[in-house]
Computed example of a mutant assay.
Amino acid sequence: MNNFSWMNHPAIKNIDARKLAILMDLAKEAEGKSQDKLVPLMVKANAQLKTMNLSFTKEENDLLVDILTQDMSPAEKQKVEMIKRMARTMK
């Protein structure tokens, strides 16, 4: 996942530097990890943000999922999308 092309995404342009640092750390830490290892990484990142009284916007969360799933197979990506839909209905 050394592909940091996501840094060109429009959502990155105005992102808080603290959020960007956490996002970059997460992308590096997620490299080569299986799908089941990604959720704890996302939880960890959100916990870090919370301690700073910050949170990712919906657009930033979508970008985060794109980053974490870029090396996944279509079937794995489909599972992630299903989890996202389930999470939205639980809110």
Rank of each mutant, 00 (worst) to 15 (best):
L20P: 02
K77Q: 15
S5C: 06
M90P: 04
A45L: 10
K91F: 12
L54S: 09
I12T: 04
R85M: 11
F56H: 01
D66C: 05
I15T: 05
A75E: 15
M72R: 08
S73H: 13
A30C: 09
I22S: 01
K19L: 04
D36M: 12
H9V: 04
N46M: 13
P40G: 08
L49P: 00
V43G: 03
A21Y: 10
S34L: 14
D25Y: 05
K91R: 15
N14Y: 08
L41T: 06
N53P: 06
L20Q: 07
M42G: 01
S5A: 13
Q48M: 11
K33H: 10
V39M: 12
F56Q: 00
N8A: 13
K79D: 13
D16F: 02
Q35T: 14
Q48V: 07
L54V: 09
Q35Y: 13
S73Y: 09
I83F: 14
M42W: 02
P40I: 07
H9Y: 05
I12K: 01
A27D: 01
G32N: 04
R88E: 11
K77T: 08
I12H: 02
M7C: 09
D36Y: 12
E60R: 00
R85P: 02
P40K: 08
D36A: 12
D25C: 08
D16T: 03
L23I: 12
K19V: 03
M86H: 07
N61D: 14
S55F: 10
N2D: 12
D16L: 03
K37A: 15
